[in-house]
Design a binder for these strands. Structure first.
Lengths: 283, 283
DNA sequence: GAAAAGAGTTGCATATTGTCCAACGAATAG
DNA sequence: CTATTCGTTGGACAATATGCAACTCTTTTC
């Protein structure tokens, strides 16, 4: 048992990144490691998921998963099979690669819904959208930049490529500008590098200008840079530490030139501020 | 083994809320779980997560989790313990309730990054077309109506005026019918007006009939109305908000009267549903 | 062009590991 | 106070995960 267990736990020399799992709700929810008797297979299974998490979008080969999680290939294969059976993981039939699947998204969404700030921001956004009779979205910081986590349809007939899961560009969306405004360079820089490698380039000067403006006004706007014909106004939702928790965006057609009137902007801003205050912001 | 497994699967007399375990092959769920050997504990673990997913924001008691997942309390407790150890689940020390934890959010974020509707729909369409040895197309809503964004040649030699960028008629194509079925009037009406001004007129009654039929069947068909001699069957790809993201169309010659047999239609439909699920649809 | 290497997948004997039962302490109710 | 319910734990048993090796298929190498 000793040799076997040692092999399992230590992996093949590679130490597994056991990143301190950040805790969003500042309540008394503990996730402390305890040496109590549990289901070992489940803990190993989570190791497999962890291995899949920091993988390129197009998935990982069995080989990589096995290495990252410190399992033999046959073992890793069986764990992946179990996850595939349950929809947590999907396997690309073309190239055989494994990646997190649709059910993982649902788990994440269910977990997010439990996070107070997101819930509150979503509710406030919904009521503003109903008031303004238009459509909008909620975004948080995801693995590859600002990610749409809620899409609220409010009367404005729109067909866009945007949807829950879309990653918005940092440099070319009002949402992105807000994240640039409120988040550390260390967080945003890699994404910008990535975007520029993909051909989306906005000069640092121009970005700086927009960031300053967003900071002054308390909101950011874009016209048609993400989806042609669609303009957006985004406002930040901050927590007690002035950290950006989420962004609320209100959409309209670019031809509705005067959609974002002073009173409407005020409504949107105060909705975001109400949400911010509700989660402890004191600015 | 029999008695034991039966007990596991059936629960303790209470029937488990077996919410359509989304397995694509649509096997009957009471029979053999997985034809291939996997890790049973992991699959059970996912059952526990599923139980946690649809519970109130403040978490669920061990009791509920046990019932919903069809496990004994001691069993459920051990699974939850394993998830708590890994940060997937958190336990409120005050009231002892369990809920999805911060790590679940991270899993979801990682999975979200992989959601790319058009690519996924294109891949699924391609494999169906290869299977059926024919040609098809992918369409999304464009500025002037349903627009072809991918044309996939699959053996059927077709000479048509259709190509990437073509706008399909709302009233006279199976693709158009689907957009009429799933999109708001406000979005489609202008295009219909435009079409009628150009001489293409289908009565509202007839359209309504087709829309109802498409909604019932889950697909739409046309014979030769877009391109003479060419018939098409189109299926919708939906996202998490039940919005129509794209349509997949499979083409054939009208003289191949029995091309769209039941099993083929089923294949096409399930490809679209697989794509839908992969981008978060939960219907 | 054949052989070798590497990838993904599967069968099988073995014992590690999950399961069931029962029990404990702690709340809560009656 | 007793009775019940709940979360949690211990221990014996056997079901289940493991490691090894084999197999298929593709890719690489010579």
């Amino acid at each position: 048992m000793n040799a076997r267990k040692a092999n399992q736990l230590a992996g093949k020399g590679d130490e597994i990144e056991h990143q301190a799992t950040e805790r969003l709700p500042a309540e008394d929810w503990s996730a402390t490691d305890s040496p109590r008797k549990a289901i070992q297979s489940v803990e190993i299974g989570v190791r497999v998921l962890r291995a899949l998490m920091d993988c390129p979008r197009d998935g990982a080969h069995l080989r990589e998963v096995a290495e990252k999680s410190g399992l033999s290939r046959s073992q890793a294969h069986r764990y992946l099979l179990a996850f595939v059976n349950t929809g947590v993981v999907e396997q690309n039939v073309q190239n055989g690669r494994y990646a997190l699947g649709a059910f993982s998204v649902r788990i994440g969404m269910a977990a997010l819904a439990r996070v107070e700030p997101v819930r509150i921001a979503g509710d406030n956004l919904a009521s503003v959208l109903e008031d303004l009779q238009t459509t909008g979205l909620l975004a948080v910081w995801g693995n590859y930049g600002p990610s749409v986590i809620r899409w609220i349809d409010g009367g404005l007939p729109l067909m866009t490529s945007l949807h829950v899961g879309s990653v918005l560009p940092l440099q070319a969306s009002s949402t992105g500008i807000l994240f640039l405004t409120h988040c550390s360079r260390a967080l945003t820089r890699p994404v910008i590098v990535q975007e520029r490698a993909s051909g989306l380039e906005v000069s640092d000067d121009e970005l700086e200008r927009q960031v300053v403006q967003a900071r002054e006004l308390g909101y950011a706007t874009t016209q048609g840079t993400v989806v042609p014909g669609l303009s957006a106004l985004s406002v930040p939702v901050l927590d007690s530490g002035n950290r950006l928790v989420a962004t609320m965006s209100v959409l309209s057609r670019v031809q509705d030139k005067h959609f974002y009137s002073k009173p409407k902007i005020e409504k949107i801003r105060s909705a975001a501020m109400a949400a911010s205050r509700a989660i402890g912001w004191q600015g």
